[in-house]
Amino acid sequence: MSRRPTMTLDDERAAGAPAASPADGGPDEPARRRPARRGRRGGAGGPRKWEIYLPLGLYLAFTLIPFYWMLLYAFRPAGRTGFLPWPLTFEHFSTVWNSVGFGVYFQNSLKVGVVALITTTVIALAGGYALARYRFRGRTLFLVAMLCTQFIPGAMMLIPLFEIFRELQLVNSLWSLVIAETVFQLPLSLILISGFVRNVPVELEEAAWVDGCSRLRGFLTVVLPLLRPGLVAVGSFAFIHSWNNFLFALMFLSEQEKYTVPVGLNYMIGEYGADFGALAAGGVVAALPVVLVFAVIQRYLVQGLSAGAVKG
């Protein structure tokens, strides 16, 4: 359901196109291709080239200028002006990493993100497999409950979760974040994974059982390798979500050595007359991991989100 053949085809074509165009001098190629297609569509045809590139260019400017502005301030020496980060400097990064404490925050965020990624994926994998492969009493109830949780606001949970973590002695511990993140990511991840499992033909597993595999062995050797792209997507969602979480971290962590990156950023924003170079460098540090993860998963994003949110 989630993986549509058209998508794969389109992607290959799109991925091939930019690589091909610089070689043959760019604009000629699509120009030759396009009239032919328009002819086939009977004159009512697709949009002209400028009708795509003009709005796209405007939107790209809106998206990219803020990113560029951050990079500009992060890499430009304090007191300089101009639209190029020149001469290039790393002084803001050393300020942020050492004096402000982003070195520690970064480690904390990374720990929470990685552990939450693992717990979320593993627990969701077990539940998702059960949903996809078994009919059992309470299955529908479980599914509906899962969808309902999407409506529970995080801000609403601040007070009672704080109370629970206080009783568990987990306030000021990164585990409170791991638990909260896992719980909030679990429903969507579980629904996504059950969709991915359903895409694996059950016959493949049955063939393994006939060959003498246990259900577990069949799962590990047949299903799990096929789930890899799906698990990468789900794990990445969990990591990004946890990396970005602010409110829980703000509420549950009070010692500076426990802060995560968003909390650190928040306190930098709060200081007025702030060191904008350092703030921008902190932003770059905060952006780097999610941008890297995004670059890896953005191909799956369209299928993944639709499988979870629309088809779920």
């Binding site: 992607d11 990113f67 968003p262």
Partner: peptide
């Protein structure tokens, strides 16, 4: 369908992964 579509998609979708706090600092 246009030249550079895969790259354009990746770029225009990129703020999706950015947190509220980071958006603010930008």
């Amino acid at each position: 369908t246009f030249v550079g579509r895969a790259l354009a998609r990746a770029l225009v979708f990129s703020p999706w992964a950015i947190s509220g706090v980071l958006t603010t600092s930008i």
